[in-house]
Design a protein around this nucleic acid. Structure first.
Lengths: 357, 357
DNA sequence: CCGACGGCTTTTAACGTTAATATCCACACA
DNA sequence: TGTGTGGATATTAACGTTAAAAGCCGTCGG
């Protein structure tokens, strides 16, 4: 039988999609051989393979992901759920984060699909379930995981690969995560202001129930203890500018007032700046301030806010690599990656330079 | 033949997916009838339909999108390409925008998929093409379109439904777009400072080649002309804090200096604030400032920055509705929606209240 | 000289859905 | 009694891919 005619392929489809069958016809082989040439190169003869790849190239063949998804129960899709942006929050991490997450995903041969859920963990879990039922998502990326996170439990019980941005603080060793070492970062920020000569260093952080906040607080405690400094000036508040402002006023009204304030977020630090402003005090000169996140705002206010920048690019890359490993059935224990934040020093923590170029 | 056994359905799959065949068996009908009951209700008898829907409910059936995509050449996926966040930019619109875009998409029965491309329009178009070849994307959402946008031309030539955030300024009446009326917004901001008694109102905007920037500038011109004010104080610069700062210095050094500065972005306005700071002038009290975008920073700086908020939620909703209409083959001309921004008045433009609660 | 084997390739069947077509059945009409 | 007719339902085939099985053919060992 003439190999030129024996296989299907009704010529180029009107929609411009090139199929395996068309490539097969062009190369004078069966569709399966084309599939093998692309996915299992060692199953076809080198000579044939060359011919097939030439045909692939010539016709511009791209495998149809829907068909592949149907056949393989695997869609090359990684799902991520965005949270609604909180109005009071300065952090723009999400924007950058999504960008690199997607870039890394594409580089690794996946695509990012966003999922949407009503607020609350129950709604989120339901959304994940629905998505899984209808699309055979390959993996999930979680953000802002916390102790006893129901989402983690759910995904684990379903056996779906996932990785989370944020440690699973309850020691789930079998969960892949990537996180930034807030303790080390806050310790560095505290050390930095101590190096400027400050001895009354206050800390304004989040409520105790936040593992993330507690971790960062420990860094401040570490640095103070290392230097024999008092740790009496501390506040645990919800993350908002107003709370930062009030806490700052309290610490400046203390019998032995703070001369430096280390904050768990830029939002709180900006509240501190507002408090100083109200008192006619100059950030940096009169009171040193540090934040956390390197939100765009930190660079834009005057004076610039000293803060900690999370290596968000690296976080995204590592997360994708983590799920990729999981899906490759990599037998080694799930990845745990703890990255160091970078201290960005600006004028808000420097006594010398007043911001007047 | 016993309807309970005549149809496929090898019992619940191990993966927990429920298929049409399983529902069909449960309801004692064929798979096609189940499909019809869900997609073409009037093709099945009311009685049967009720029975089928009960089975669907009981088994928790959800149609498999991969199979549907393969069969229908339509994936329920809407693609959107993120741009890398520019470090100097205060705007956090993207974050919110994506959230509502996705929420609206899900509500309309779609999912949002992110696409990634090397920088530049050519890379972006190639990315769109690749995505189309492999996934039968239903529609695209573009952002930041400009005159003679190659992406618009490409998508149009391929016949793919799309809608853009941003007008196609070259009068392509057959392109669906949603935009925010920057001219009206800037006019309102200018009118607002004029109402505070300012008569020397400068404008710091983007370079002339930006249609968006030019549109906003027109609003300032409108407001000045309506009041017979001079329009000699204007700057056209690239969007950065430093450029805003320098332009502000120039306008404050003028023979008849500005007492109010209307800016095309929050970033520029924050540069102005830095310039005032450097001169010991007080925003609002000495010089009124307005920005554009209501970036998170605008609310966080002291004093708060008067700015224009884009109804980003509505933009997202309208964009999805636009592509939905296009895909439904709605014969009416593509949607063009021009929304009004909202003037958010804060202390940076108010002489009376000094920020000292 | 026969059977087994191994390398390479093709064939078959299936993933879950749906458009198009075929079948069935009750009823109306000649 | 036969012949349409039309509504409801069932069957077939196809979307593009790939795992599994089967086929082909030359070679090697007994």
């Amino acid at each position: 039988m003439d190999p030129q005619t024996q296989h299907g392929g009704r010529g180029p489809t009107s929609h411009g999609h090139v199929t395996l069958a068309q490539v097969a016809r062009q190369a004078g082989v069966s569709a399966q051989s084309v599939s093998n040439a692309l996915n299992n190169p060692d199953r076809v003869a080198a000579e044939t393979r060359k011919r097939i790849l030439a045909a692939v190239e010539e016709l511009g063949y791209e495998p149809n992901l829907s068909a592949r998804a149907l056949r393989n129960r695997s869609s090359s899709l990684i799902a991520f759920k965005m949270r609604p942006a909180r109005p009071d929050k300065a952090s723009m991490l999400m924007d950058d984060f999504l960008y690199v997450l997607n870039a890394s995903a594409v580089e690794a041969g996946y695509h990012l699909i966003l999922c949407h859920a009503e607020d609350g963990p129950a709604g989120e879990i339901k959304a994940y379930r629905d998505l899984l039922k209808k699309t055979s998502i390959d993996a999930f990326i979680l953000a802002e995981t916390h102790r006893n996170d129901d989402r983690v439990a759910a995904l684990r019980s379903w056996g779906v690969p996932f990785a989370s941005f944020g440690r699973s603080w309850d020691g789930d060793e079998d969960v892949a995560w990537v996180d930034v070492d807030g303790r080390a970062g806050t310790r560095a920020a505290t050390a930095h202001v101590a190096a400027q000569g400050h001895t009354r260093i206050g800390h304004i952080g989040w409520l105790e129930e936040s593992e993330l906040g507690q971790d960062r607080r420990e860094g401040w405690l570490d640095a103070c203890r290392e230097r024999g400094l008092d740790t009496d000036l501390q506040a645990a508040v919800a993350d908002s500018l107003e709370n930062g402002r009030q806490a700052a006023h309290r610490m400046l009204d203390a019998a032995r007032p703070a001369t430096a304030l280390v904050c768990t977020s830029d939002t709180l630090a900006l509240g501190v700046m507002r408090a100083l402003h109200e008192r006619g005090l100059r950030p940096g000169v009169d009171v040193a301030i540090t934040g956390y996140d390197d939100s765009p705002t930190a660079a834009l206010v005057s004076p610039g806010l000293t803060t900690l920048r999370q290596p968000i690019d690296e976080v995204g890359r590592q997360l994708i690599q983590a799920v990729d490993n999981l899906m490759a059935g990599d037998p080694r224990t799930p990845q745990h990656v703890l990255l160091e934040p970078e201290l960005i020093v600006r004028d808000s923590s420097l006594p010398g330079r007043r911001d007047t170029r």
